[in-house]
Write a protein that binds this DNA or RNA. Structure first.
Lengths: 159, 159
DNA sequence: TATTGTTATACTCTATAACTATA
DNA sequence: TATAGTTATAGAGTATAACAATA
């Protein structure tokens, strides 16, 4: 029979604790930035030309596209990004970093590295790299893509 | 000079994506349980006698004690837990699992293992264990405890 | 005076739907 | 008809302060 596990072995518990701890540390570091740590993620993603329409950004950041509207509004009002018409699709807007935004981004990156360092402090540098790598690989899969086992289950109508 | 990183190398981005993905998967599995995945964590923690006052549970789960009141209210209304007076401190209430709650917990554990498996699917079983272990070690440090470097900084008044 | 639990209030996020302008 | 972006609204979640009972 299955003995009750300890809550420490629940992945959701660990993820929640670590994510909240990182969020608190990051919010301190980026105080004043519109959108907080998420605003930083927009700046980083917008710094790369590729896939910088609002919808693409929203999907990459894992938020609804309505949230992205407010986020860009605030970042634009702060002079950190601009909305430019997409030459290929007049419905879409490309989000590009302003010069001010680029300078701000450099400072933010330095501050957020400190926040990450603070959260990961219990681990050795090598372990930190392993954790980052594993988390990134899990995060990079499209959450909307059904897994192979789900596809197989649907095809075979089993279970 | 620091070239802008890709958003994929931001720890906050990866943590947010993975935590949200897990939350969605877990919510599907525990549909109907008061408090959702967090209610499950309360049940697991309450199944262990130790440190099961509402305040201790709140701290372990990383939420405010006011949140715990609502959570326990709902779990108690569903017959899954009971509030018992703490014999050592009449202000405190000990949260204990009912028989119904214990049975429900067994089922929930099985379902949540599936959810975790779904989220961690991109990793090999060995990598999954490594990720769980590293996350747990980071999560287990008390978020309110200042790090050694912070203490040293306060003491020396440097920086 | 400090702490546990409760309650009430306000605030922040998020989810949803409806609308526009394009495709 | 479908999609990108916007707007408005409602709901969930959270934070804060105040209170009663007890330490």
């Amino acid at each position: 029979m299955a003995t009750p596990q300890r809550v420490e072995s629940d992945l959701g518990w660990a993820l929640g604790r670590v994510a909240r701890a990182h969020l608190r540390a990051a919010q301190e570091q980026v105080a004043g930035l519109p959108g907080g740590p998420r605003g930083y993620q927009v700046l980083v993603a917008a710094a790369r030309e590729e896939s910088s329409t609002q919808l693409a950004l929203a999907q990459k950041l894992g938020v609804d596209r309505t949230v992205m509207t407010y986020l860009i509004d605030e970042l634009q009002a702060a002079g950190l990004v601009e909305r430019r018409p997409d030459p290929a699709d007049r419905r879409a807007r490309r989000v590009v970093l302003t010069q001010t935004g680029g300078a701000r981004l450099c400072d933010l990156e330095r501050r957020l590295r400190e926040a990450e360092q603070h959260v990961l402090a219990p681990l050795s540098p090598e372990e930190q790299d392993v954790l980052r790598g594993l988390l990134r690989r899990v995060a990079e899969v499209d959450p909307d893509t059904p897994s192979a086992c789900e596809v197989a289950r649907d095809l075979t109508q089993e279970c």
